[in-house]
Amino acid sequence: MSQNSKDASPDHGNLEHGSTNSRRDFFKNFGLFGAVAAAGGAAIYSGYNYEETKPGANFVRVLTADNRIIEVPKEGFKDIKVDLNQLQKQGREGLKGHRFVMVIDLAKCRNARKCITACQGAHHLRPHEYHINTLVMQESEHTAPYFMPKPCQHCDNPPCVAVCPVDATFKRQDGIVLIDNERCIGCRFCIAACPYSARLFHWEEPLMAEADKGTPYNVELNVPQRKGTISKCLFSSDRLREGKLPYCVSACPNGVYYFGDENQDSVTNGTTKETFRLSELLKVNAGYQLMPELGTKPRVYYLPAKNRLFEFKDDKDPVKSI
């Protein structure tokens, strides 16, 4: 409550390249979200979190859906519990105006696997359940091996979405492909269809099934995970909603990941927090996509594993390490 609004603005600048316009958009989204939740004219939950009070007065400033800042008496405040319907609605709508992309610099990956543990921690997964996995790759016998982190490619022409019989896995306007485990029937057609092996199925009771009981399901985090349904990389859309970088991107110690918005042509490195032009980055480094010949149109780009500054050391046996 005592935060001032500058702090409260999440490290959005990294992501947005300082564009004030989109920042306003961004808050507008919060306002909208709040307005819906507070049907009946109660105060706005997100505003409540992000705005300061006037010292001494019993009024709180909140941002409305139409971008006005108003003051509301504190007594009129009602904490709206974010419920399932709300989460489902916002989760399916996505973040308006964005087209998220990821760039992975293979030259820097040392298989630290920090991205993986951060992701698994956030999504309550076991060590062998991957939203993102780093693979040991070698194109052919005489070419150098390298490490390749592999999240869901958030394909623009996603075969997994096409085959899903119940619209449990879907593509959002911001480019992210999500999975709704409240609806998934567990047919695993999407696993068969995904050429990147990017999906996992909960064959058994998920790791934190007990602990997560009662938590409303957040489709953007896919927590609580559910037995008999699919889970997959979500581009950390819960973090993006808060204007933060994805879990894996922030966790990498080696500067492998860039994440950003195609619409703004900018991506931010998760380690150094430097921001780059997406088009430049891809052009200069000869960026490419995984198996583009399949026509899936991935939203994840790779920069080739060239000029590596370290020995390739595959000390973790990829097959038996677990």
Partner: peptide, 8 residues
């Protein structure tokens, strides 16, 4: 699959 099965 197209990509190798590793770390499982």
């Amino acid at each position: 699959p197209f990509l190798p099965k590793q770390y499982v």
